[in-house]
Structure formats: C-alpha cells, structure tokens
C-alpha cells in the first residue's frame, strides 16, 4: 500500500498494528527515522522491564535529536500538543486573523486529526474587572466574547477532535463556527468555558460538522434547559459534561427525554446544576443507564 493510502488508513484506524508496521517500512525506505521509532515503541509494549527501559532511553534520545525538525514540518505559529511515533496528532493555534490559513496548512500533516484553538491575545479579558462598567449590583459581569467571526472560514477537514476549551468566543463565535466546513467526522468537541449560551449551542448542534459528536464538554458555559433540549440532535452522544451550567430540574427533564440518554456512558453534572428535584429525578429515572442512575443515588 502506498504511503498516502496507509496514512488515510491509520487516520481512520489509529490502532491498526499491521498498517503501522507497513508504514514503518515505507518510512525506512525514504530514510525517515520515525520508522525506527514505530518499531521501538511497538516492541516496548511487549518487552520485559529491562528491555523496556533500554528502549525508552533510545526513544527519548532519538526524539530529542529530531523533534525540532519534525515540528518544523508544521507552519510557524502552530504548536504540537500530542504526538504519535513522532508525528503530530494534535496541534494548537492561537486565534488571530491569520489562524484559518494556519489551520488549513497544519491539517495537511498526515496524522493531524485533533485541533486546539486557543484564545491568543485577550487584552480585554486580562484587564477585566478594573473598570466600573465591568460591574453591576450583583458583582462582576462577564467580559465580552473574543472576536472570532473568522471561525466561519475554517475548514475542519478530516478532524475527529476539536478543542476550543477556555476560548471565550460566546454565542457569536459559536454561530460562526457552525458555518465552518469540513467532512463532518468530529467525534470529540470541547467547548468548556467558552461563554456559550443556548443560541450558540443550538447553532452548533444544527451544523452537519458536529452531527457525529460522541463526546461533548460543555462545562462552565451559560447553557440552560433550552440548550439541553437542543442536544437531542446528537444521536451518537456517549459522554456529556454539563457541570457548572444552571440547567435546573427542567434541564434534568430535558436530558431524560433526549434520544441518547439510554446509551450515555458518562454524564458529569453536580447537584447545584440540576437542583435537589433534578437529583431525585435522575436517581429514579428508568431510562438512565443503571450505573449513571446509581451515581445519582450517592449525590
């Protein structure tokens, strides 16, 4: 199989041992030492402890020697957050006007399937709280969202994971992201602390780019019961983190009515998020998988 075809195979089946072995041979042929890395890491998984230690040392030395040149394959301004066999699998970009172009280039990396977009410069957020207009009688107001209209021009390509954690894009940013293009393969979507409300969430869920999402992080946003109802479009959902959103008893009801509720494997929420009444409902809901229901009986 040609290298390109192998790369596609490995993007779709990252644990295919035979494909990695074949790819290692292809790398050897073109003098890429990452072929050796693949072989050593594979051996390390089945070796005894003494050999494993030796291999770990060799892997470390090889990686230190070549890491910079490997990362230089990516455009400047793109950092690597996770690697496999020396190849970047998750990259990160600080948001700016140039970010969509950087992202497009970074996603050409053969094994890049995960992207993190970080807030980058946020002078308004850094200085928030020092002016009178940042307050009302109830305490500090939320800082305005970071301008992120350019998310609409991002091509999400063949990404399977998109991480916008702590990127305070708000509903405008979420609505822009909903217009992004791609192949709709995203399975893991991290939107924690993004200052997203119900309208932004609804826009995202309605986008075909996110229809395949299985793992969704939404902690610490401004989602209410209405936003929870919009999640019903995610029929493949197995993990959901909704902590620190005031969804109340209505939100618990909305969750229990969602089509994915019977196949959820992980649900993260706190008592204060759903109210005492919500806790009682979750603890006695027959449609909730047994282990999730048991969790609520200890709350």
């Amino acid at each position: 199989m040609e290298a390109t075809a192998l790369e596609q195979r490995l993007r779709e089946h990252p644990d295919d041992v035979a494909a990695w072995r074949a790819y290692a041979d292809a790398l050897h042929e073109r003098g890429d030492v990452r072929g050796k890395l693949i072989e050593w890491e594979r051996r390390s998984r089945v070796a005894g402890s003494a050999e494993r230690e030796q291999l770990a040392s060799k892997i470390q030395l090889l990686s230190e020697k070549h890491q910079d040149s490997w990362d230089a394959e990516l455009p400047s301004g793109v950092s690597v957050e996770a690697r496999r066999h020396g190849f970047a699998t998750k990259v990160a970009v600080d948001w700016s006007d140039e970010a969509p172009a950087l992202i497009a280039e970074a996603l050409q990396g053969p094994f890049v399937t995960a992207l993190r977009i970080k807030a980058g410069d946020d002078p308004e957020g850094e200085e928030w709280g020092h002016e009178e207009e940042h307050w009302d009688e109830n305490g500090p107001l939320m800082p305005p969202p970071i301008e992120a209209d350019g998310l609409a021009s991002v091509d999400l390509g063949r990404l399977s994971a998109l991480d916008l954690s702590y990127f305070r894009m708000g509903d405008p940013g979420a609505e822009a992201l909903a217009a992004a293009t791609g192949s709709g393969r995203i399975e893991t979507l991290d939107l924690r602390y993004c200052a997203i409300g119900d309208s932004g969430l609804a826009a995202l869920i309605a986008s075909p780019q996110f229809a395949a999402v299985r793992r969704l992080h939404l902690q610490c946003n401004a989602v209410t019961a209405e936003g929870v109802r919009s999640l019903s479009g995610l029929t493949n959902l197995i993990e959901l983190d909704l902590r620190y959103n005031d969804i109340g008893e209505d939100g618990a009801d909305a969750l229990l009515s969602a089509p994915f509720i019977g196949s959820l494997q992980r649900l993260l929420l706190y008592r204060d998020d759903v109210s005492e009444a919500g806790v009682q409902k979750l603890a006695s809901a027959p449609q909730l998988p047994t282990t999730l229901r048991s969790y609520w009986r200890s709350v």
């Binding site: 957020g125 709280g129 940042h134 307050w135 500090p140 610490c220 620190y244």
Partner: peptide, 9 residues
Amino acid sequence: DFGRFDATR
C-alpha cells in the same frame, strides 16, 4: 483579580 476570579480555575 476579583473581576476574573473563578474558583474552578
């Protein structure tokens, strides 16, 4: 940093 304080972070 009262205006930015978030206990969870």
